[in-house]
């Protein structure tokens, strides 16, 4: 499974495109169209028979612009991490296309810094491994220097090169993970819940580091998380996922202050409010029921089983992800709801 090899999802770009570096800011650097990932459910031991499929990602389309941060939020099991794995070519897509513009280099920063670093490799070996796999990037004699530069860039002492991962704290380990991601000078970094395993104070440091690296190296981020506040802080645009589909996507202002999809509204109403006085006033939407099984999602709109606005139409027709013509101002952004509308109650009163 080589990232540069030909694959079913068309990540291989033609030569002339591959050498056309420097996609201008604001242009899409990554185009994802109708991406589908089903995990087959099989029965039987000797003669396996497919009895169904877990529809982890089911028709996801979006563009990632050069230099922007796209946040992807959603609850556990909505397909966020599978989406990241498919984009990284760690899982083969069932259908759809992923097209990288410019140099096809994207890197993944993992969720848990405690398990993403090999405990039996020195930090120098971990960060230097990309150079061993792709020796053309840095000649042998320069690797050590390159690794120390990377440590410096992520704010770690370059003298730590001979230490082992267990000698570092969670935040430092995540910095090592980021340094490894930067080694091959990627244009896109996919962060799969990069701070969810860290203390809140350390989260801020890592987020600040990511922002600083973005401006230094002109990186584009896809930032997957379930913490809405962090996503708002770092993202230029935000996509909300539910059961393998993007239900709403727009700029952070559009999503956080002018959400039109009921699921987004429910999600936002659940964000903890630090002020106890304000907490009493807020209007929480408490969703009933559980997330339906992705192996057997509801017909039509996938959210209809838990939606207070659901109508017969929702069961019959899959709502398209588009802006509805009855909406005004910032509410005009892509939302997959037949009855898209802003909430009447002000969420931040």
């Amino acid at each position: 499974m080589t990232p540069n090899g030909a694959s079913a999802i068309g990540t291989t770009v033609p030569e002339e495109v591959a050498f056309q570096q420097e996609v201008p800011k604001g242009e899409p650097i990554l185009e994802v169209r109708d991406l589908v990932k089903y995990f087959p459910l099989t029965k039987g031991i000797l003669f396996r028979k497919q009895v169904g499929a877990v529809k982890a990602v089911d028709g996801v389309s979006f563009d990632l612009m050069q230099g922007e941060t796209l946040g992807i939020v959603g609850e556990s099991g909505c397909g966020k991490s599978t989406l990241a794995k498919v984009l990284m070519n760690l899982e083969a897509a069932t259908a759809g296309s992923v097209r990288y513009k410019g140099e096809e280099i994207s890197r993944l920063v993992f969720q848990d810094p405690y398990t993403s670093l090999n405990p039996r490799m020195t930090v120098g070996d971990i960060i230097g491994e990309p150079y061993e796999i792709h020796p053309e990037v840095a000649p042998k004699g320069e690797r050590r220097k390159a690794v120390q530069d990377l440590l410096d860039v992520v704010g770690l002492n370059p003298e730590y090169i001979n230490r082992y991962p267990h000698q570092f704290s969670g935040g430092q380990r995540q910095r090592i993970g980021i340094a490894r991601g930067l080694a091959l000078k990627p244009e896109i970094i996919i962060c799969d819940e990069p701070v969810s395993a860290l203390d809140v104070s350390v989260q801020a440091q890592v987020i600040n580091l990511l922002e600083q690296l973005q401006s230094e190296f002109n990186l584009s981020y896809m930032f997957i998380a379930h913490d809405l506040s962090i996503v708002r802080h770092i993202s230029d645009r935000v996509g909300v996922m539910y059961l393998g589909k993007i239900v709403e996507i727009g700029t952070d202002l559009e999503i956080y202050d002018h959400a039109t999809h009921p699921y987004t509204q429910a999600l936002l109403s659940a964000v903890p409010v630090p002020d106890p006085a304000a907490r009493a006033d807020r209007d929480r939407i408490v969703l009933v029921g559980d997330v339906p099984s992705p192996a057997n999602p509801p017909s039509g709109c996938r959210f209809r089983t838990r939606c207070w606005k659901a109508q017969p139409k929702c069961a019959e027709e899959v709502p398209a992800l588009m802006a509805r013509d009855w909406l005004r101002d910032l509410a005009v952004h892509d939302s997959a709801c037949h009855f898209a509308a802003e909430r009447e109650v002000d969420l931040e009163k």
Binding site: T115, G177, L184
Partner: peptide
Amino acid sequence: DYVVAGKAL
């Protein structure tokens, strides 16, 4: 994860 990370590289 570190094996996945190696694979991703």
